[in-house]
Each structure stands twice: as C-alpha cells, then as structure tokens.
Write a protein that binds this DNA or RNA. Structure first.
Lengths: 333, 333
DNA sequence: TTGAAAGCGCTAACAC
DNA sequence: GTGTTAGCGCTTTCAA
C-alpha cells in the first residue's frame, strides 16, 4: 500500500492537518519539535504526496505542454531542449508531443493537455489556422505561447523573428554576389513563417527587376528540398535560397547529383542555422535564428504568465543575422 | 465553474452513478432512453471528466513516459516519433523528456513520472549504470522498456540490436575493401552500446592481425566526431568506422578540411542509418538499425505489459544490416 | 499550537 | 434499471 499522509500523522503522533501544513511550508506556527517529528516520519516511511489527491481541488499540475510540429527537424529539437532546460530548472515537467503537422493530432494534444491540467502550452510550428486551439486554451484560461509560426488568429503571445526581413536579407546577399537567376525553395502557406521568407525573397527580387523562380513544398524536410532543388537546377539558376536549413541538405544532394559544385557552380543560402550547418560541405551560409534566446525568452514569459495569472503578453520579434560561411560566392561568369 | 458529473445528473434527471456508468461504458443495463438523456446532457453542457478525480483511486493515467538522452540526435527523434505514433493511436499520451545524458535529470524524470502515475516508462539511451532507476520502477510496479543501450542491471525488458556484431560487420566490410589502417571513433563505456560497437571493431581487427586505432569521446555528436576524426587522420588511417552516424558528419568535415576526399582518400562507414545519411556527400555507407521495427515492437510490448500487468518481457535483439552507399571503396594504393 | 471535519469529482459496492 | 453512499488522499476552514 502506498504511504499516505495519514500514516505520517500516526507515526509522528500529530494530526493530518499538521502534516499537511508542514509539508507545504505553511507550518511556521508549529514547534520545532513537531516539525522534526513529522520530517522524521516522512523520511522513515518514504512518503510521497499523491499527485491526484493533491491536485484534486487545485488547478495546477506543474506540467507544461509543448506541441511541436516535427521533432525530427533539428531546429525544433534544439528549441524544445532549451525550453525544457529552463523549465525543469524551475520545477516543471515538460510534456513534449510531436504532431507531425497534423491538425487532428494538434487538437487531440491540446485536449489531452487541458484534461491533464497543464499550467501552460507552447505551440511550436503548428498550423497557422489554429483559432480553435487557441480558443480552447483561452476558455480554460491556460497561458500559451506561439513559437516559430504566427497565428492568423492571435496578435499576442508569440515569439518570432522577422521572416520577411530574413528572406530579403538572404536574397540581397545573393544579389550582391552578382546572382540574378536565383531560385527559392519554400513551403505552402500553411507554413506561414516559411512562406513569409519567400515573400521577402519575392520583394527583393522585384526591387531588382529579377525574375523570381519559386518552388513550393508541402512538407519541410530534406526530401522536399531535394525534389524542388532538382526542378530549380533544371531551370538553370545560379543560386538557391532554401527557406529552411533542413531543405538545404536536399539542395546539396541535388546539386551533387548533377555535377554542380557548391559554391563554384551554385551558391546556396539557408535559414535557421541549425547545428548541422557547420558540418555541411561546404558549411552553409544561412540566416541565424537566435534559438537559445528564443527558447529562454519563451520560457521566461511562460513562467511569468503562470505566476501572475496574466494570459496576454505582447508579441516579441527577435533579431536575426546573416551567418556567412562558405556556400555563397560571387557568380562565376 | 467546471461542469461536473453532478450537473449532468441533474440535467438528465438521473443519479450520478448512472452518469458515471454510462460514461465508462458500463451502462448496458440502462434503457436506451436513459442513455440518450445522459448523452444529450453531456453534449449540452460540454462536460469533460475531471482527470484528477477520475484517477484518484485508480492507478492509471493513460500517460506513458519516455526518457531520451539526446533528442537532438536524429536517431532518437526518429525513434521517439515512431513510438509516439503507435501509442497515441492507442489512446495514450507520451510524456517525452530529454535528459541530455545527465544522471540527475534522469532520476528526476523518473521521480516526476512516478509521481504522475505514468503507466509505463521507456528509457532510450540512458546511462547503463541505472540500477537505482530500474529499482524505483520495479518497486512501483511500473513497466519499463530499455532502448538502444542495455543496462548492466536488467537482463530483460530491452529491445536492442547486436552492437558487437554490427561493429564486426562494419569493420570487416572495410577490411574486405583492402583497408588495414582503420580507425574507430567511439564513446566511453557509459555509452555501452556504442562501446560495444568498438569492441566488435577490435575483435575484427585482431582476427586479421591489424593494429587498431581507437579514439574515445565523452559525448556523441557531430563535434566529438570531428575532433576525434582529426586525430585519426593525423595518424594516417585510410578508413574510419564512426560508431554513430551523427559522428560521421564530423568525420566528413575533418576530412574535407585536410583536403581528403571521401571515398577516394578516406573510406567512412557509420552506424544507425538516420535519414540524413542519404543526404551526406557522398551518401554514407552504414549499419542500419531498424528504427521503425524497434519502435513498433517497443510500443507493442509496452501495451502488452500494461494490459496484462506482467512486468517482465524477454530481451529482443533485432536484425541489423549493412547499407551500402558510396562512402567506402577499395583502398587506393 | 493543534485537530476535526467538510469537501474536491468520481467510482463502485450495495440497496432498492 | 436506478439511486445512496462510502471512500480515494489531500487541503483548508473553523474550533478549541
């Protein structure tokens, strides 16, 4: 049988009230000796409070949900890791769930999390058309934070970067290296942030009078990058902007298969700056997302919301930066 | 206020017992009409059972813990994803926690999971010296399954591959390609499975009378692979066996920096067969772990243990296979 | 300083 | 077929 507060009370020869108060640090009024007796009993019987009983008429679980669209994408794995590190440090447990970008799964997870009384929810890379999810969270007064992908529905509680500006910067970098036939690999509008990066590309191309060549994927991974890069290469581009580093892996492969060398025959720029970009050959020039800062800021905001009961926090846009490595050079004539 | 079973009872004009039984599919004895009334009331009031109350005098939570040593390692991310897919399908929620190979974190997670009454725990890549963790789980009669890394302490409940044989096979493959100066990049004995792969390498080398050259890392990632590959290359090896694909990324980089081409100047073989190996240049020859089969088998075993209450399941060793791609060729003289 | 007792929402044994 | 009621382990109000 599990040891209960009753057993402790009996062992220490006090009432259960006394035990409860002392356990929860509300027992200042008790004598030193009572404290000691209770502590000893707890240690002796190896008592652990009962999670369900303790929370029965509470509304806190010390658990925070984290819904991520694709855990095998290193960017998300790195982000989740940073956030978990901070939250665990603060005494929370993170309930990390992978949705594989599936709407139904996302909703299911939100329901299950609310059912389990999570104290907050992070939504990383979930579908942008998520009014129903946010509505549920608001109704239950559970704080949430949106990461990576803005929601059409929420103008607050998000931590993002300026994807459009990043797209412009990446494209301009290629343009300043004399590239004109620049292709772009992006994803459909459900991936709103990645879509925005392509919008930045389009704007930068337009301002130079360059003709854009965009390929749009329905998934963001190495394979889709590979497929679309092939199409672009067949169209004769001299540079490619891959709106996600993971897609850039596919670009490298497609180029290699066609005998194109990077950067001599093809310049490539990515977006995200995942750890692996250092290990691509050549190392990928990319737009850096401050993953650590995003995660830490997100965790802090969440803790603050939980603490204050405030459910709204203004959107934050963190700075990106161009990370120059070796995959882009001046166009060879 | 949250809607409770009482409200439903009142609305439907029945007792709370009736509601409870019908909700839990134990209400065969009630009339069609009663069923309907209760269902209508539930829908009308948008009733949801109370997680803590429901489980208060139960011992099930419909939640399964998953402790992983390094979620940013694609192998683990892929494995976790497969398992979660199966388990979610079966009505469970997976509590995925990343320990960063930290003993304290692992223990903390086990405690928190037990506190939350998880129905089972997966331990993927956790420290091999984990008697204390398994002891806790056994004491609470919570089924567990060990993945990736065997425990010195448990001869059951594991799903592994034959790491030693894999090491032998990888090494022999290099040997049959005329390589003699073969280096090996592995990790310290805390990573028991990876360590075993190196043992296989040593055996294969010894049986040929070749002199082994082993470098041992304290972490398994791209960086450690890079560091150690540098050392091996400086010692003049013509082939490298990287005991983990993620480390092979580092080998590629170290080789490139020294002007060594793969496979012409250096043959490389990896282990795991993560998705990204297809995208390495050249694609990495490696030992395939049947990630999908491992995950599905693990999930099935877990469900069976939960269902039957049986806490022991024999170890399973799944088959590996050599996956030939383009990073190994016959040694050039 | 301490304790008795009500109540959180639900399940299940038992009664009708 | 249906309802009453006693808990599950803990927190908290109120009394002493």
């Amino acid at each position: 049988m599990k040891v209960t507060i009753k057993d402790i009370a009996k062992e220490a020869n006090v009432s259960i009230t006394t035990v409860s108060l002392i356990i929860n640090d509300k027992g200042q009024r008790f004598s030193e000796e009572t404290h000691a007796r209770v502590k000893t009993a707890i240690a002796k019987l190896d008592y652990q409070p009962h999670y369900f009983a303790k929370n029965l008429n509470k509304t806190k679980s010390n658990t925070i949900g984290f819904i991520v669209s694709e855990i095998t994408n290193p960017f998300f794995a790195e982000l989740a890791k940073v956030i978990e590190d901070v939250l665990v440090e603060q005494g929370y447990l993170v309930l990390l769930c992978n949705s594989s970008s599936d709407r139904e799964r996302e909703e299911r997870y939100v329901d299950e999390m609310l059912y389990r009384f999570v104290d907050g929810v992070f939504l990383a890379g979930t579908v942008s058309d998520n009014a129903h999810l946010l509505e549920k969270l608001k109704k239950r007064k559970v704080p949430y934070i949106l990461l990576d992908r803005p929601s059409e529905y929420s103008q607050t509680n998000g931590i993002f970067i300026d994807d459009f500006a990043g797209g412009v910067e990446a494209t301009n970098y290629l343009i300043t290296h004399q590239h004109q036939a620049i292709g772009c690999i992006t994803a459909n509008e459900h991936f709103s942030n990645i879509h925005q990066r392509a919008q930045g590309y389009l704007a930068a191309m337009a301002s130079q009078g360059n003709t854009p060549v965009v390929e749009i994927a329905d998934e963001v991974n190495e394979y889709s990058g590979y497929q679309l890069a092939g199409k672009l290469l067949d169209k004769g581009v001299s540079a490619i902007f891959a709106c996600s580093d993971i897609m850039a892996f596919g670009v490298y492969k497609a180029a290699a298969e066609r005998g194109f060398k990077i950067p001599e025959d093809l310049s490539v720029i990515g977006f995200d700056d995942i750890n692996l970009t250092h290990f691509m050959l050549p190392p990928l020039t990319t737009i850096t997302q401050p993953t650590k800062a995003i995660g830490e800021h997100a965790a802090r905001q969440m803790l603050e919301m939980i603490e204050t009961g405030n459910l709204v926090v203004p959107n934050t846009v963190l700075d990106i930066a161009l990370k120059t490595r070796s995959s882009v050079i001046v166009k060879q004539s």
